[in-house]
Design a protein around this nucleic acid. Sequence first.
RNA 1: GCACCCGUAGCUCAAUUGGAUAGAGCACAGACCUUCUAAGUCUGCGGUUACAGGUUCGAUUCCUGUCGGGUGCGCCA
Length: 564
Amino acid sequence: MIKDQITQALKTALGKIGLETDAIAITSPSNTTFGDYTTNIALQLAKTVKKNPFALAEEIAQAIDTTGVIMKAEAYKPGFVNIWVNQQVLQTYLQEILKDTITVPEYHLGAQKKIMFEFAHPNTHKLFHIGHLRNISTGETMVRLYEAVGNKTISVNYQGDVGMHIAKCLWRLKQMFSEDATLDIKNLPLREKIELLGKAYSQGSAAFESDEKAKQEIIDTNKKIYTQDPEIKQIWEETRGWSLEYFDEIYKLVGTKFDRLYFESEFADRGLEIAHQAVTDGILEKSDGAIILNGEKHGVHTRVFVNSQGFPTYEGKEIALAETEFKEFGELDKNIHVLGGEQQSFFKTAVKAQELIDPSIVGKQYHLIYGWVDVKGQKMSSRKGNIVEAEWLINEAKKAIIAEYESSEEVAQALAIAAIKYAFLKNGILTSVMFDLSDAINLHGDSGPYLLYTYVRAKSVLAKEAKPEVSTAEYKPNDDELQIMRKLIKFPDIVLEAAKQFAPNYLTSYLYDLAQLFNLFYQNNPILKSSDAEKAFRLELTQAVTMIMKKGLYLLGIPTVEKM
RNA sequence: GCACCCGUAGCUCAAUUGGAUAGAGCACAGACCUUCUAAGUCUGCGGUUACAGGUUCGAUUCCUGUCGGGUGCGCCA
């Protein structure tokens, strides 16, 4: 990586003037007039060596060898040393991109180089909404980024298929069947089945709140689900199947594949067993008929693992889930749970219990928090029925695209997915976003479709004519071209940082910058109407841009299209 | 009450983890298609980074306080 070579050159320069440090921080200045890379090392060292920072920066700049990877080094104002990369290095890197031999540095979270990502987390019998969409977009890109920096990743999805929300839904659904004997659910399209579940849940919830008799019946239904009572088992299995089929469609649509689907129903029995054993071992405690972790002893919130009716709560099932997750795929470095911040208290307590039960997993559970999704200021609630559902949203975006550009189904779909995913990923992972429909299906400016458009445009040029067989070695790139080349060398740095910091938005803004530079170049410089080395070079540059765009978009979980 | 997250342009968000002149998109006003896809490019407009202190060469970023918002805090998931 070029950055490493710069660090090496700096180290040598520091050595020449009798300085030594391990902490050489090299960053890319936001303003390219300050060079390709910059270091504040003089500012850091000035105090310890008792020198004026700017004088020290000048001294370092002087000592840098400018015959190798570095072309120019200059001291700036308070004490930065700004560095320009040799153009030959840019040329070489361009050729490496074309040969597809560029590499991204490795980054691991442990010796196994193996990381599990647990994400998506929809509950059966409920809708898959934009909150899940943000979750799955984030999870998928993190998986791809960690693969890119040399890890084996395992994608898993823990889906809630038992619990009160399902009891509420099924209780009402059974009523609906007896109220309307003509309801022919078997032949309903999937879409309508899901809507029916949503309606039943919403009405069941309302009854639970307002009607004491209904409340008791729903609690009873919940028990029957846990005990797999024949009275409820069949309808539970069937409706659960609808949800899973519906989820599968969405996973396919957004391009996520899971290595393993876990279900809450798998972990109820084992969760109980572990919890009871943990009481015997003095880890969990009995309290008011429930089994809890006494949080005060461990600096977390006290939470219930088995309720007073003897059923495992979410926490109770989580300890069994952890046991399986850490067993099924061999030793993991980390198990990263992509979960909203509202689950923090739950997660801390559950993890504390897991670590007390199995010390071998201490420090391996990680809660990757992503920000809340709000819709125009109002909080989504499936009980109130005002949620933005994933497939509906994708279809809205698709319709808008077809209406404006007469795109084919296939292209419109790809663009819709790109628009929505990009709208989430361009934000900081923690930023709670105000979701605005018109913004998410925006096709202009800083958007997914803009990136795809840039890619398609470039590809279209490449498809028109073959590259002339002329050497580009002697070609002197102009400023527009240089800007692109200087951007291209940063790709590995960006991928590494995006993975390290769990910051896919580093990659989105990198690709956006690259696209902007290319569009500027495209605007000002004829490619096919140029000739000889110039034409050959411009075609090479164009191709390199498409290759990096495609790689970057892949890492974001956004497939490219070839025409639009 | 306590804990965590947050407050940046009219709106939605960035800012490479303490760096240089705080950047984009949308919206608004204008310019550019007999040249490779105008889903594009360019120009303009827009800021006391909630407020008050502190730390230091340097603060949107770290610390303290105030105000405002979100989330959670024992039998939901």
